[in-house]
Design a protein around this nucleic acid. Structure first.
Length: 660
DNA sequence: TTAACTGGAAAA
DNA sequence: TTTCCAGTTAAC
């Protein structure tokens, strides 16, 4: 106060565009709209769209980002001034802001939450560095790049000026190098590129491949473990246009690459691509929306193919980029299945490990020529129920959800809709009995070492992940995703997790098992060079067939058919509403359900401890064209609760990756 | 942080 | 019924 007059009254609004429309860093759903503030003449030059500011919001000082500058405001009341402008660095470009709005709406979340995912925290010191010039022009890829794929060369050609979208079914080999070639083609055409991979190890691989093809200064790697200063420094290198290519983990899908020409997702079935923070968007879906908005190309690349990628091909939005006819047999190892009924190995130690004879012989022979990979499941797989006869996963006869037995002698109960399946029949073989599948493979892995006493054993997984192994005969025991690469490929791989992976109470069990098997099998030498793979699982199961024949696309199409009959994503849209029973009931009561909506539940969720509060879940599924309406009504229900400060937090997830 | 609103109590 | 005041609410 000066002489009894509030300070604000003394401030003069800027002569041109005096209003800043901002997004405040507040995640309450009922406040998810822009707010207008006045800009002083002194602030006017720096408070441009994308710049961070501090504003007084309901008395509190909060962070905000300027969305636009306007001549006037629609707000009826008096406007406050911006409290402060934080630097003059635009960190939220207009395209990323528009994408963030679309993502918030698609996942029933708030813009503030999505912006928090998209823009890293500020580190003022990093902004002081002078802007560098962009890197030198990039040469196009060498002729013959991507020649292992039918239409690979055409894709590289198209990416220069158009927006080619492909589900890329990759062959064993240098996947990082092949992706880097696609990036190179994009940069050679003076457009930007973005590569999103599941974890830091894959970032390193693509980073190295880009270094080799592009030379220094053309790209940056973005990972969560960089530390604030370095992360922000690299983010600025992208937003300032100093580099045109980015590789990173899921948050990198938001990197403000200029003139985006290509977005790449590697291994989109990996659940690390699903953002664990609200509103839980999936990197593949964000990349697809972004490519669509930007008129950029999209590659959904992997050894495996997800049902989501298959759906995008089926509806004509993407096409497949598949191995050329002659390339597949040259790249793929010889793969066989060894069912549980098969004879066990003669060797006593191998018998203890319950290793089928075929697996034991394959490993023993291969160890004469190089390292052998043994894939074992991670700890903590919750086995579900499967047909006692054919081992197919047991589904609820009412809604198609996974079944579990609440108590030993209890009839199976659906984990989604809660219905007791007193009479159950297997949809595959017609069997009438289902039982839990025992997971005992972890011990098997430990015992394996004793089955091959003369060979060194190395393990990779959990906290201790090995990057690569030499070509010396070694038994390498690894959990899925932690398999080291071998210098010239493994001589063989034994995939031990058949039962455990397929018996997960998760409708993606088959897809996930195949993805992990393909990932391990891709590290093995081609059959021409003696590479062998044995998967310990019944050969008649669909994922096993797809592995043996290396037909991930075929599997994805069948998987998509299943999703259609079960009314599941990506064919339907599904929402999970989780929270204390009264709060969930409140949300459900406030919904205006779209046409064709099915409501499943409530189902009580297992509690962390006896003292933790009761939590239940409802599932809602709607035809996909009603997805936007479902998200909108869920958002409105949440906004109503936050506006009246209702007690209890309700979590809303759209198309969750796993429905536990 | 603060203006606007709410509801209860005192004054008339 | 009106006025005053303390506590609460919205949020530019």
């Amino acid at each position: 106060m000066v002489g009894g007059v509030p300070k604000a009254r003394l401030r003069e609004a800027a002569a041109s565009l005096p209003v800043a429309r901002v997004v405040v860093d507040v995640s309450l759903p009922h406040l998810d709209r822009p707010f207008d503030y006045l800009v002083t003449e002194a602030q006017s030059a720096s408070a441009v769209p994308g710049v961070r500011v501090r504003v007084r919001f309901a008395g509190q000082l909060v962070d905000a980002i300027v969305l636009e500058r306007t001549e006037r405001s629609d707000h009826g009341g008096r406007l406050s001034f911006l409290e402060r402008v934080l630097g003059a660095e635009p960190v939220l470009s207009a395209d990323v802001a528009a994408l963030a709005r679309e993502v918030a709406d698609r996942w029933a979340g708030t813009l503030a939450d999505v912006v928090r995912l998209a823009v890293p925290p500020r580190h003022a010191a990093a902004e002081k560095r002078a802007v560098r010039l962009p890197g030198a022009p990039v040469d196009p890829p060498v002729p013959g790049a991507l020649s292992r794929y039918a239409g690979g060369a055409a894709f590289l050609d198209e990416v220069r000026s158009a927006a080619p979208r492909r589900s890329w079914m990759m062959l064993p080999g240098d996947w990082a190098g092949e992706i880097a070639a696609a990036v190179q083609a994009t940069l050679a055409a003076e457009r930007g590129a973005l590569v999103v991979v599941p974890d830091a190890r894959d970032v390193r691989r693509v980073d190295d491949a880009l270094d080799r093809l592009l030379g220094p200064g053309q790209h940056v790697a973005l990972t969560a473990d960089l530390g604030r200063a370095e992360r922000y420094r690299r983010f600025l290198a992208v937003s300032r246009g100093e580099v045109r290519a980015v590789v990173g983990t899921r948050a990198a899908v938001w990197a403000p690459v200029r003139r985006l020409g290509l977005a790449v997702i590697w291994d989109d079935g990996d659940d690390l691509h699903a953002e664990p923070r609200a509103p839980y968007p999936h990197a593949r879906e964000v990349a697809a929306l972004r490519a669509h908005r930007a008129g950029a190309g999209l590659l959904i690349a992997g050894y495996a193919v997800t049902a989501e990628a298959a759906e995008l091909c089926e509806n004509g939005w993407m096409t497949r980029l598949e191995p050329a006819v002659q390339a597949r047999p040259r790249a793929v190892p010889a793969i066989r299945a060894a069912g549980n009924d098969e004879e066990l190995a003669d060797d006593p130690a191998a018998r203890v490990a319950r290793l089928p004879s075929l697996a034991w012989r394959t490993a023993r022979d291969a160890l004469r020529h190089g390292p052998v990979l043994v894939q074992v499941p991670r700890r903590g797989y919750q086995p579900g129920l499967a047909c006692a006869h054919c081992r197919a996963t047991a589904h609820c006869p009412t809604c198609g959800g996974p079944l579990a037995r609440p108590a030993l002698d209890h009839a199976p109960v659906c984990r989604w809709c809660g219905v007791t399946a007193a009479v159950w029949r297997c949809t595959v073989c017609g069997g009438s009995e289902c039982r839990a599948v025992v997971v005992g493979v972890r011990r098997t892995a430990e015992e394996l070492g004793r089955a091959f006493p003369s060979v060194p054993v190395r393990t990779s997984g959990g906290g201790a992940v090995i990057d690569a192994v030499s070509d010396h005969p070694t038994l390498v025991i690894a959990t899925p995703g932690a398999e080291p690469s071998a210098e010239t490929g493994y001589a063989a791989a034994i995939l031990l997790d058949g039962w455990a992976l397929l018996a997960r109470p998760d409708l993606r069990a088959g897809e996930e098992a195949l993805r992990r098997w393909l990932g391990a099998a891709a590290l093995v030498r081609p059959s021409e060079e003696g590479g062998r793979v044995v998967v310990v699982a019944p050969g008649e199961l669909r994922p096993v067939q797809a592995l043996v024949r290396w037909r991930p696309g075929w599997h994805a199409d069948r998987e998509l058919d299943d999703r259609r009959t079960l009314h599941l994503p990506p064919v339907a849209r599904l929402a999970a509403v989780t929270g204390p029973p009264s709060a969930v009931a409140e949300v459900m009561g406030a919904l205006e359900l779209p046409r064709g909506a099915e409501v499943l539940g409530p189902v009580p969720l297992p509690r962390a401890s006896a003292t933790s509060p009761e939590v239940e879940r409802m599932l809602i599924r709607v035809p996909r064209r009603e997805g936007a309406a479902l998200a909108a009504t869920l958002k409105a229900a949440q906004a109503g609760r936050s506006a009246r400060k209702a007690l209890g937090v309700v979590k809303v997830e759209i198309d969750p990756a796993v429905i536990g």
